[in-house]
Simulated scan of single mutants.
Amino acid sequence: MKKTKLERLHNQLLLFTINRPDVRNAIDYQVMEGFKEAIHTVKQDSSIKGLIITGSGMEAFCSGGDLSVFHGLHTEEEAYSMLSKMGDILFELMTLNRPTFALMNGVAVGGGCEIATACDFRIAKESTKFGFIQGKLGITTGWGGGTMLLEKIPFDRACKMLYSANVIPSETGVELGFINQVFDEGEFQEEGIKWIEELLNNSSSDVLASYKAMSVRKWLSSNLKSRMNEEIKQCSILWEGEEHHHAVNAFLARKKN
């Protein structure tokens, strides 16, 4: 089974799906390549109005990095190699020249929450829970998500999410300004896509690109890329630490039982 899917919808939208429901749509290197393909497609096709990112099934948007793959990374250098690869992808996603949407069909934790943060809008299913749980694993956000979050919502709200490492319900996400729209379980994807269509309906892809460029110019002028990279470096240092490896071993042991 292919780990990602890329579909051109009839309404000038591109839908990218992480297709690993058996592991809660966790990210591995093949999924990273799928993200690159989606971003490249948008950049090359000027008729596309927006990129939608979602997960397969109705349980998880994305559970972050696949620990069964990445737990083999022990040193700071090994961790940085992986983290910076996905960090580069999320920088490209955040600064993409078209509107981007996280269609959060289920749990979005750890790196999954970083992916959602990189998008311009976050649309959640009513039962969706999300959170930057990295602190419970002895590390910080490692794909640039903390830096991006501080660009998206007020400082105190962002810090509350990052410091607590809690999993948060979608209705609280609306109060924090992180979630833009919530829909019921039943027709979640259809309603979410309809909401996106209505938002973009009156503007051409060129107009949308011009508006997005206003934010991108601000982010580039404030050295977003280098700030994300400093975050990634710090996470790499913590990754090498005993606290992180102990926490991940305990997590994997619980999954086996």
Rank of each mutant, 00 (worst) to 15 (best):
L83N: 14
L103F: 11
G145Y: 05
L162P: 01
N105I: 11
V167L: 02
G111C: 09
K129N: 07
F101D: 05
E151Q: 13
T100C: 09
T75E: 13
F101R: 05
I115Y: 13
T147R: 03
T140V: 00
L90V: 12
S170G: 10
A165M: 02
L150Q: 10
K136D: 03
S68H: 10
L137H: 03
C119K: 00
L162W: 01
M148N: 03
C159W: 08
G142L: 05
C62Y: 13
S56I: 08
H71W: 04
V107G: 06
G111Y: 03
I133G: 01
L67Y: 08
V69F: 11
L83W: 15
I139M: 06
T141C: 13
G112N: 04
L90P: 12
S81F: 14
V107L: 12
T95G: 14
T140F: 10
S56M: 04
A124E: 03
K160Y: 11
L162Y: 01
S164A: 10
A60G: 01
A116M: 07
M94N: 13
G72A: 10
F132C: 01
C119E: 06
V109R: 03
L67P: 01
S127D: 03
E126S: 11
Q134S: 06
N105G: 12
M82T: 15
F91D: 09
G55T: 05
L67E: 07
T128E: 01
D120N: 05
S63P: 00
K85T: 15
A158N: 04
T95I: 09
L90I: 13
L96I: 09
A60P: 01
E59L: 07
Q134A: 10
G106Q: 06
I168M: 03
V109Q: 03
I53P: 01
P169R: 03
L90E: 13
Y163Q: 09
E126G: 05
M58E: 07
K85A: 15
T147P: 02
